[in-house]
Amino acid sequence: MAINAQTLNETEFFYGHKACAGCGGSLAVRIALKVLGENTFAVLPAGCMSAVGFNFPQLCFSNNAIISTFAGTASMLTGIEAGLRAQGVTDFHAVGFAGDGGTADIGLQALSGAIDRNDDILYICYDNEAYMNTGIQKSSLTPFGARTTTTPAGKNIRGNLRPKKNLFEIVAAHGIPYAATASVGYLNDFMRKIEKAKQIKGTKYIHILAPCPTGWGIQTDETIDVAKEVVDCGLWYLAEYENGSFILNHDPKEFTSIEKYLRKQSRFKHLTDKDIQTIQNSRDAKWEYIHRNFK
């Protein structure tokens, strides 16, 4: 039976934490743990989710959970998985929840090592497109044009000048057993992918876009709408990589307005029409690539 809002485990594993209202990342963690269940060992590096969930004596995970070093999410997962297996424990899931900076920047080496070894772990990147915990600094997953506290939008430079790193395909290029993209705007799709990853041996990677109202400059009740819209306007996509092939899960017949998506977020307020055209062109090129290479 497919997991949906009606069949989802009612037990809460991540509660009493101090995440901001409307936090997409905490929603991704909460939902993923409900799908994975109580026999889950969660590793969270330095970042938003560890900062809001592990303040002694207020510890917010009812399953096993541990903070890793910023760069060490994947390698600590490896040790947990190996340590449990060495003791004859088999009925468990080892899952990591790291942000975009913790995954695409400082944690990429350890992640690549774990995929290379094909360790039996699930790595979930909750991507809010900047270092939010330290106050909205640019990461390599910050999209083109976004204003962050280290890519100010001024007269000379208008926000981040580099495109978002293509981490999903970088991960897939390892020949990983399973990788997927997701969005907190499409939770059924995310839950299905976690459920699928649960059944697969070896390394699994799920990259979920998770808006941050504080960093993106949106209202706290807009998180889900914006997370849907980023998929609907084609700036993010829902896909899987399995058995050496890319599969597109959701192919919008017609994209919604990129301009509307961007203009409602204060991080993009400064963009010119030309900037928006640049973003649209890169979206179109990406979708041309997707239609050519994804099933």
Binding site: I66, G72, L77, G79, A82, G83, L84, G113
Partner: peptide, 15 residues
């Protein structure tokens, strides 16, 4: 860095 991080993971489950 991963060598010790991995060892910490193993130790954190009592190995």
């Amino acid at each position: 860095h991963s060598a010790l991080s991995c060892a910490m993971g193993a130790a954190s489950v009592g190995a």
